[in-house]
Computed example of a mutant assay.
Amino acid sequence: MISLGTAVLSWLLPGRWGIRGISIITLLYLAWMAPVSLVLLIFTAVAGYFILHTGGRIPLNVRLICCLFLYTGILLHFKIQVAFASAGTGFLVPLGLSYYLFKQIHYAFEVYKKKLMRHSAEEYFIYLFFLPVLLVGPINRFPDFLKDLRRRRWNGPLASYGLQRCLFGYAKIVIVANYIFSYKIQQLTENKIIAADGWLANYLSVIRFPMNAYFQFAGYSDIAIGLSAIMGFRIMENFRNPFMATNLNEFWRRYHISLSSWCRDYVFTPVASYTRNVYMGVIVSMLVLSLWHEISLNYFIWGMVQAAGIMLSSRLMRFKSPFNPGRGFVIFEKGFKMFLVFHFFALSCILIKPQSWQSIMHQFRLLFNF
C-alpha cells in the first residue's frame, strides 16, 4: 500500500518533485522500519560516489577496489554475523542490504568501464532510493533507470500494464504460493492415504519447497515491476518461465535473472577472462550466487551442485544425435529434458531447506530407496 500510494503521489507532485517524492518516502520508510539499513544505505551511497567521482589523481582501478572492499566488507560482516549467531538472538541482515549493495557494485564497475552517461549525484541517489525494488529486487541497472528517469512522462498503457503485473504478482503469492503450495500440498502430505505412502509424501514435500519459494519470489518481482511501471520505469524481468528450460544453462538465464546476469557480468566474465578457464568462472559465479543468499555450508554445497550441473549440461549440449528424429520424438525429448531440469533443481533444494543434515539424508534415502 505504501508503494502504491508513493506511485500516485509521484504523479501528483509538480515537476521534478514527483520523482524526488519517491526518494523521500523511501527514506522515511527505512527510517521507520529499518534505521540501521537507512544509515548503511546513506553511508555507502555517499562514500562510494565520493570515492568514484572525486578521487583526483588516484587511478580509477584503485578507486574501484576501494569501493569493492567497502561494499563486500559490509555485506560479509552482516552475513557472517547471521551465520554464526545463535538461533535465539534473532539477528538479521539489514533490510534490503544485499540488493542495494549489489546495485552499488554494478554502478562502480560501470563507472570504471566508463560506460555511463554524464549524470548528477542526485540521479544516482534517486536510483538507490527507489522503493519498489529496494527490498526484494530485481537488481535493476543504472543506465536503463537513468534513461527512464530523464524521459519520464505519464504513460497510460504502461501504467495499465503495471496494474496488471501487480495483480498477477498478488495472485502468485496468495493463490499459488500460499494457498496451493503452502496450504493444500501440506494438507495432502498429511492425508492418511498419502502419509501412509512414505515415498509420495516425501516427494510432495520435496517439490513443495522450491515451487512455493519460486511463486513467492516471482510474485514479489511482478509487484515490484508493476509498481515501477506505474511510476514510469521499466524494470528488467526477474523470471521467464524457468521450469520450461531444457538445460541448466538456460534455467539460470530464466531464474532470478537480475542476480544471475549480475554474476555473469561482474563475476563470471572477469574470472573466466583472467583465468582463461570457463569452468572456473562458473564455479566462482555459483559460489557468489549461493552465498549471496546465506553464508552456510548448506548453501555452499548447493552452489557447487549447481555449478557441477551447469558444467555437465554444457558438455552434454555438445553431443548431437546423428539421426533425424521425427517431430513427436523432439516434443518428447524436450518434455523429458524439462522434467530432468526441474527435478535436478528441486532435489538440490533439499540441501537448503531449514532442516538438519539427518533430515536431509533421510529425504534422499526415502526418494532413492537407499
Rank of each mutant, 00 (worst) to 15 (best):
A201G: 13
D148Q: 01
T89Q: 08
L9N: 04
H256L: 10
I295L: 13
L41D: 01
Y100C: 06
M1Y: 08
G232Q: 05
A195D: 01
L287S: 11
W292P: 03
P35K: 08
L101S: 03
P35V: 03
I295A: 07
F319M: 14
A229M: 11
C263N: 09
P94G: 07
R63T: 00
M33I: 07
K320A: 13
Y299L: 12
L297E: 10
R327M: 12
Y220T: 00
V330N: 13
I19H: 11
Y299W: 15
L13T: 00
N212S: 13
K337P: 00
G73A: 07
F268M: 06
M317S: 14
L101N: 01
A45P: 00
K114A: 14
A177C: 12
E110N: 06
M231R: 05
G226A: 12
G309P: 03
S356Y: 09
T26P: 03
S160H: 10
Y183I: 10
K113F: 10
E250M: 10
G21F: 04
R234L: 08
Q216M: 14
V288W: 11
S290L: 07
V136I: 09
I105S: 06
F209V: 13
V284L: 14
K320V: 15
G137T: 09
V278F: 11
I42T: 03
I301S: 05
L28F: 15
Y170D: 00
G169W: 02
L200H: 05
F145T: 04
H119K: 04
L134E: 03
V174D: 02
N178P: 01
S273P: 02
L75G: 03
W302P: 10
N61Q: 13
G55K: 00
I42M: 14
F364V: 09
D144W: 04
D144P: 05
M361G: 00
G303W: 11
K334Y: 04
I194F: 10
Y255P: 01
T72G: 06
Y255G: 00
Q81M: 14
P270L: 01
I42W: 10
I352A: 05
K184T: 01
E333L: 10
N61K: 12
F339W: 14
Y279T: 01
C67A: 08
A31H: 05
M211V: 14
Y112H: 09
P35F: 09
Q358M: 12
A7L: 06
N277L: 03
W199P: 00
L312F: 13
Q81I: 03
L128T: 03
A159P: 04
G55L: 02
T26S: 15
P157R: 09
Y99H: 05
Y107A: 02
F332V: 13
G281S: 05
I350A: 02
M211T: 07
I65Y: 06
E250Q: 12
L40A: 03
